[in-house]
Write a protein that binds this DNA or RNA. Structure first.
Lengths: 179, 179
DNA sequence: AGAATCATGTAAGGGGTTACATGATTCG
DNA sequence: CGAATCATGTAACCCCTTACATGATTCT
């Protein structure tokens, strides 16, 4: 296995849920309950993480070194664990933000999440995100259209046409995003 | 909770994977390995069940009484467990076949599966399936369009427009299914 | 001789949901 | 007074994936 220092190492594909948490923390430190609140107010159409899962994610992200926490005692209520992004965590998040979604089934979930956080964190990169996502979709469109020519099976053709229809619609939607 | 004898009782939503197995068995008795083979040859674009999962599903469906098996010994190879649908299983499958998919995100997975098995098992019901699915999508379209009018949040609007685009595309695809 | 196919599974783990436990505080 | 909010989690379960175990048979 050759490793090049300047080339981002292959990331094992991470769950979208991780990015939801990293994204919120990129907007500022927060404790678990707070992350949950922010995800439920404004992002509930994209991510629906349960509180119990958020606590678990924060712990596992911390084990990976993408996140750190600092205990803040309160007089009466239980102490807060205020989490913040580590440099590694920020790097992981930013590289996710810049990369288009490859699995079309996840477009709604993942692309809208990317778009949201890109607009908040690095809005100057939005056009690049949109155009690279468009490129991915157009590639897919071309390759599926080719497959369609030599497709005999009936069901396979229906599936193919369905996917083509979805991708075309996504392309149009993406092209209309320039408002 | 009032129950009417002639109204199908509320079914706890079942996993699509269950229907994949039930659907294959509706075409004829089969053992686990065979179910797996059939799902991988021809339905691999819709369902991708692992063999280990299929064995597990067959067992749990049997516990629910939707499926039965009969042991068939072989001379040298291990004995086969030939599964077949029970009347209850057939009922569950048929009521699934006739009902449209409500969660649009699952259209590709579930509707195409329904369509496939409907064409094989009760092709006379295909038009009804298609038109009831169309009705569901049009309803969704209307209710989302209404929501859109009183939608202020930017992200929410993007999500809404994305969903509208997907549903419209699905409608067009469905309307073109009459071949 | 080695690979693929036939045929059954088990075990471990990942990621997520549901429900529960705790206990103070604030709102209606 | 009871409900909701604040703040942390744990435990059990569900569905699914990955990898492994077993062993005969047929294909290359």
């Amino acid at each position: 296995m050759t490793t090049h220092p300047n080339v981002a190492r292959e990331h094992t594909p991470r769950n979208p849920a991780d990015y939801a948490v990293l994204g919120v923390l990129a907007l500022g430190p927060a404790h678990g309950y707070d992350v949950s609140r922010q995800l439920h107010q404004g992002l509930e159409k994209i991510w629906r993480l349960k509180r119990s899962q958020i606590y678990a994610l924060l712990n596992s992200l911390e084990k990976e070194g993408l996140v750190r926490h600092e205990r803040v005692d309160q007089e009466t209520l239980p102490p807060k664990k205020i989490f913040s992004l580590s440099p590694a965590g920020r790097e992981v998040l930013l590289s996710w933000l810049c990369s288009p979604v490859n699995h079309i089934r996840d477009l709604r979930l993942e692309f809208l999440g990317k778009l949201h956080f890109t607009e908040l964190i690095c809005p100057e990169k939005k056009p690049q995100l949109v155009s690279s996502q468009l490129a991915v979709l157009c590639n897919k469109l071309n390759s599926l259209s080719e497959v369609r020519h030599r497709c005999e099976n009936r069901l396979e053709l229906q599936v193919l046409d369905f996917r083509l229809a979805m991708i075309r619609a996504a392309v149009q939607w993406l092209e209309g995003l320039s408002d």
